[in-house]
Design a protein around this nucleic acid. Sequence first.
DNA 1: GGTATTTTATACATAAGTGAACAAAATATT
DNA 2: AATATTTTGTTCACTTATGTATAAAATACC
Lengths: 197, 197
Amino acid sequence: MARPTSFDRDAAIETAMQELWRHGYEASSVKKISELLGITRSSYYNAFGTREELFKLALAAYGAQSPDRVLCGDLLERPILVLLTAMFRQVCAVRAADPEARGCLFINSLCELGGEQSELGQLLVDSFISGAERLEELLDIAVRNGELPGDTDTHAKALCIQNLLIGLNTQSKAVHDEDELWLVARTMLEGLGLYRE
Amino acid sequence: MARPTSFDRDAAIETAMQELWRHGYEASSVKKISELLGITRSSYYNAFGTREELFKLALAAYGAQSPDRVLCGDLLERPILVLLTAMFRQVCAVRAADPEARGCLFINSLCELGGEQSELGQLLVDSFISGAERLEELLDIAVRNGELPGDTDTHAKALCIQNLLIGLNTQSKAVHDEDELWLVARTMLEGLGLYRE
DNA sequence: GGTATTTTATACATAAGTGAACAAAATATT
DNA sequence: AATATTTTGTTCACTTATGTATAAAATACC
């Protein structure tokens, strides 16, 4: 019962996400994104509200295609550590294959905004903590499944996995060779006793 | 034979560095920094040239006080791995103690600008690569000194150390407890066979 | 003291960026 | 077809930001 939008909302979010991924939050002004989308700022504000709102939508869109999304799923067929190892291999492949070396949008944003005492900064920090807790749960399951020794410090290992993810994604901005990235990931996973073929 | 500057140049660079550390490169406009320093943009341009130039000066000032500066020194009294372990402990302490959770200026900048094909982005990427090579040299010395087995893959371990540094510094934006950070560092170093008391 | 030299202040011009207001356009529903 | 509803286009008012140009101020040197 109203005028329809002249553009594809989901496609616009996707385009905006790619730009945020490329240049970060602060560099992605309403003006720039509007011009990129071929819409007026008027339409931007109307469709998405503030810059923060669109950023949150972009983060969600990113999450749906991120190589570490597998960790959020509920149904895990394969053993957890096999899945984890495969995920890291995927991360290395995807990051090395990006000609723009953008790393990970989430981690980039945490780095850019995590220190600020803004709503977005807090949101990113909270998501990071949730991610670590989720990983710890997965490792606890792995212990119960006999994939890991009973005395495994799953809390420490969960933080280490997060640490490795951060490092690989950021490092991929300087190291573009998949084998080099994988060398790091494999060495670290082996050192943590988490590597599984 | 000329009018002297009304401000302390080194102090100004230090103040600018702190601000760049806090909010990143793009957020630190000439206007903001000038107002923060209590000088006019005119003086800014005259004293430092472009924003890039001041940023490079700030990077140098940061490097001189960074917890990982020990890796650049030539004279190493203690065994290298003891020094390395101590450095990581220092990184954890310093990052946890920062009430603003700014992480590491260098790594923040690599994350923000590393992907862009700008002069600064390339400079940061190059510095990162140099850092990895320097670490590899140190590990090679450690092998020769008998601190590490002869078959150690120093290339892999050097990249892993860089990875760990990136992860800890960025993670410190979300994890403010020194013990938690150290837990990650120690677990990783032990896993890599690099931990020494 | 006069002069050369550099810093600082001020102004100018221009572009980018934000946010709101309001009218015009488009469409689904009645 | 009229209307309610939402999107879109346009304008306004304002701040931020960059870069330059030019004049005024302050000092060192002769």
